[in-house]
Design a binder for these strands. Sequence first.
DNA 1: TTGAAAGCGCTAACAT
DNA 2: ATGTTAGCGCTTTCAA
Lengths: 336, 336
Amino acid sequence: MAATIKDIAQKTGLGLATISSYLNGGNVREKNRVKIEEAIRELHFEINETARGLKTNTTRTIGVVIPELNSVFCAKVIGRIEDTLRKHGYALMICDCRTDKVREREAVEFLMRKRVDGLINMPVDGKGRHLEKFRRTGKPVVLIDREINGLGCDSVCADNREAMKEAVKLLVENGHRGIGMVAGTQDVLTAQERLMGYEEACSENGIPLRESYIYSGDCTIESGVLGLETLVRNNPEMTAVVVGNYNMSVGVMIGMNELGLSVPEELSVIGFDNLQFARACRPRLTILDQPTGEIADHAARIMLERLGKTDCAVNAQPYKVRLKTALIPGSSVKKL
Amino acid sequence: MAATIKDIAQKTGLGLATISSYLNGGNVREKNRVKIEEAIRELHFEINETARGLKTNTTRTIGVVIPELNSVFCAKVIGRIEDTLRKHGYALMICDCRTDKVREREAVEFLMRKRVDGLINMPVDGKGRHLEKFRRTGKPVVLIDREINGLGCDSVCADNREAMKEAVKLLVENGHRGIGMVAGTQDVLTAQERLMGYEEACSENGIPLRESYIYSGDCTIESGVLGLETLVRNNPEMTAVVVGNYNMSVGVMIGMNELGLSVPEELSVIGFDNLQFARACRPRLTILDQPTGEIADHAARIMLERLGKTDCAVNAQPYKVRLKTALIPGSSVKKL
DNA sequence: TTGAAAGCGCTAACAT
DNA sequence: ATGTTAGCGCTTTCAA
């Protein structure tokens, strides 16, 4: 068994409180400090966070619930958050709910049992019902990528509407008017906003909305493939497509390949996320790039701030951070 | 504050031990069982795993240390492991060490302090020095993707040598003899094995090894780009390239794009990992696909088995699982 | 089957 | 500044 503070106390002849005080940055006489540090080294003492947690009712652990670990956006954001939080002594317990509302709720309950001090969530359930129980604990919840109204949680998202408007605008400026969209699940606010951006940009440019120009997918690669195939089949006159998330962008490129359509000669494409993928496409894909680093940094900062306070349920106003995306030009838009 | 077993005891008029016994699947009189379950429901009791952990000296938490969360291979494997382990009540604490040996060691120490019950690691330090301290606790360590000799840890890896041999063989069968390789960091066994496979296949086919045909990268996208550029510049007669990992495969495709070289007319390419990326490439990339699902399932199974035993340090033989990769044909290999 | 009581390793209130 | 002590919520002897 590992050494405990009792062992340190014994070895140094000091009391428990002194050791504890030393461990928590309290004032200890220089002479004793040296003795304690020596004992710690000799006995290979490492503080037992479990015991500490029992006493302080904290775990220094943050739960993370995401729809899919295997998604560049999630992985980038979570990786960076982990970086920051670990520097502050917090560990991340990550649960992948496979874009399933039932699993998402189970994951939150699992993490509640594990007594995490806070929750970071990219919600699948757009209503946020899976969070209600956790919120009652008064512990902080920070939403990423998707805001939920009425729940009072902090959130950090991209400015999705503006992003998609910009994409459509670029196409219009290049002479396109037959512009389709492969959109995501409409019960998630983020996907709604991106679709809204598309619709707004169309009407602002006098392009009439057509139902057959909009495909509602489920944010998977396969639905991107299917979405492209459907749009192309139903709208032979369509000259461009915008895509509402990264997975579906990969799907659309696969679809183009497998239908043997050339970009941008036969169809112009603007994708979402992942600069590296865009660079690897031939020709290079024009994309909307989300500021994943900034999103992560804001989320981590907010979480740390909330963890400093006692009760977040009663906290004044939730943060609703919105960050700008960047339209990064490739060669996938044809000038008509 | 949440309800404790004390509250349950009080409400039911039973003793603490009875409640505890109920919670741990012990025998409780039917009448009392009903009473307890009612009290649990009414008081919203949830077991405090921190307290339990202090007593039992376990956390039901597994540490995971990986070089890069933002890597399809890692994300896929870890996601699937998380699935299985969570079903058994285990949470995952994931640390991304950014392919840095120092950070890797820090991560392991961090997780030791968090008292994880076991460790899953895709090691960056090929010598495994970062694991020595943890191993002394007698807790299980399962290595994925990379074996370390002499450490006595279990490991689950792909059959890397065979994989690369197969790739080179396919090229030879198509008439190629000027075959370059963008290889990974040579202090990691996996990368060594892949390079060995390349070298073996060359010599078996009477192709003399040339130093200028081998580029040693560091498994990042950028090193893939640089690797391709270097090989092409130094070997104008080269007709094909094999790549030693996924990130570098993306890099090579980016390099092809940015040099304006066409696949497979000017250069044939065989990449590593990620079927979906391969499908999105134009033309579709021929790749070596790792059995990520199987790797994850083996790793999870071994971990659960080890967790069932008391001490893994003294356990007989470590598992050394090797799984076959699949060569999935695309259109990136030209028949000469 | 159940209850009483000790104790896991730590923190914190209080006393010195 | 340091020591003493109680107690966080649970499990686990040991008796009954």
